[in-house]
């Protein structure tokens, strides 16, 4: 599992990469009340805004951590955005991406490095 400075986690799953946000991010955002997911089939570039999250406090975006194609999104989050606060690193993943350049993963932090990053 890899972690970005934007507080996303990336978990390789066969040919795909599953993306979600960390517990730290979920806690900082506060209660999440709305999520807008990308459309399946969308080609994204690294740093494109792909997900909109609204919490009780503010709106924020999730950026695509790598280039690729969105192949699956977690529709359950649209009905129940609060899942992200309950289980951010488990059931509440956001999307699965088919990487165009899998080596883009390499630049991201290990779990130990991320834990140190958020202190």
């Amino acid at each position: 599992m890899k972690f970005t400075e934007e507080h996303e986690w990336l978990r390789p799953e066969d040919e795909l990469v599953v993306v979600g946000i960390t517990e730290h991010a979920a806690e900082q955002l506060g209660d999440i009340v709305f999520i807008e997911l990308p459309e399946v089939g969308t080609q994204v570039n690294k740093d494109d805004e792909v997900v909109v999250i609204e919490s009780v406090k503010a709106a924020s975006d999730i950026l695509a951590p790598i280039d690729g194609e969105i192949v699956e999104v977690n529709e359950a989050l649209v009905e129940d955005p609060g899942k992200v606060n309950e289980d951010p690193t488990g059931d509440a993943w956001f999307f699965k991406i088919k990487p165009a350049e899998p080596e883009q993963m390499d630049e991201y932090m290990s779990e130990a490095a991320y834990m140190k990053y958020v202190g």
Binding site: V33, F34, E36, V52, E54, A58, A59, V78, P81
Partner: peptide, 8 residues
């Protein structure tokens, strides 16, 4: 607002 997205 219709739907779930807050308008601030």
């Amino acid at each position: 607002p219709e739907g779930r997205a807050p308008m601030r």
